[in-house]
Design a protein around this nucleic acid. Structure first.
Lengths: 147, 147
DNA sequence: CAAGCACTTTACGTTAACGTAAACCTCGTC
DNA sequence: GACGAGGTTTACGTTAACGTAAAGTGCTTG
């Protein structure tokens, strides 16, 4: 268990370059405020592919990023299937044939269009919320002028 | 069935002030590209409350707007329960007591915060999509320089 | 070595948001 | 008066995305 020069901060602790760091399922779960079950489920759905150390799952930086992207997608209302579609094609990119790549570009365009519509939806919903907010405050002022 | 002066464009057709227009469930369904079942379901969940003409549901402008807001909420990933929460309080506003109104303001603040996070999510996801898009195009150029 | 974590697999349960099917009205029209 | 187009209720089915429970593995710690 001896290397050569540096104090050898082997596996457990502090300031690893983050590219070599690994995570347990529990760590990731806390980190993103989800349950281990959720993470295993995402693996089962083909969104994550951690390696194993014996029986235990070992997550690398890549897996962490994937999980982050997945959860972000979820917050935006995408289904796991949609998310997988992009993520898998992304991985298949380097050796992807032209058809696959064009298909990927199509999907990306779709997603982008989707996002644009969501932006518009958010804009409108914001206005309505502001409106309701205004009215509510006014009614409150009437009821309770000293506040 | 006779009135007095104007040609009496009674119920069916063209240029009603839109405030008096009514819609059948089928009309609304096509208008928003959902099924009647969905609309009935939303009613059952307390999001719509059309009047009846005999047995048939009659939707007014107000109902149309509600449906629109509901679907917009859905596109943004809100649950029907969340949507109902806001919509119902909005309706209860005029005669709402102060507690209700403050509660409404709280909920609105939550929703707004939610929207802000979504905006950030969209921003990030856009960047990633753009990135993937770039890479895909590059790989394509390598493969197929004459396109 | 027992006890306690953190992890594993397997499997059945649950909730939201509709889909789908059956069986029944009620018009205008051929 | 049969019929087709729309509407209705009732009820069971389906899918996604996990939750929950049971039973086992492996380490390290008093």
């Amino acid at each position: 268990m001896s290397r050569t020069s540096p104090p050898a901060p082997e596996a457990s602790a502090e300031a690893l370059p983050r590219q070599q760091r690994t995570y347990s399922i529990g760590e990731l779960a806390k980190m993103f405020e989800v349950t281990p079950r959720t993470i295993r489920f995402y693996e089962q759905e083909g969104l994550l592919a951690p390696t194993r150390q014996g029986q235990k799952r070992i997550y690398r930086e890549k897996d962490r990023v994937r999980l982050k992207l997945t959860l972000r997608g979820k917050r935006l209302g995408f289904s796991l299937a949609e998310i997988r579609e992009v993520v898998m094609m992304y991985d298949a990119m380097p050796d992807g044939n032209a058809r696959q790549l064009r298909r990927l570009l199509e999907i990306l365009a779709e997603k982008r269009a989707n996002l644009e519509r969501q932006l518009e939806d958010i804009r409108l919903m914001r206005m309505e919320i502001d409106d309701v907010d205004q009215r509510a405050r006014e009614v409150l002022r009437q009821l309770d002028p000293d506040a």
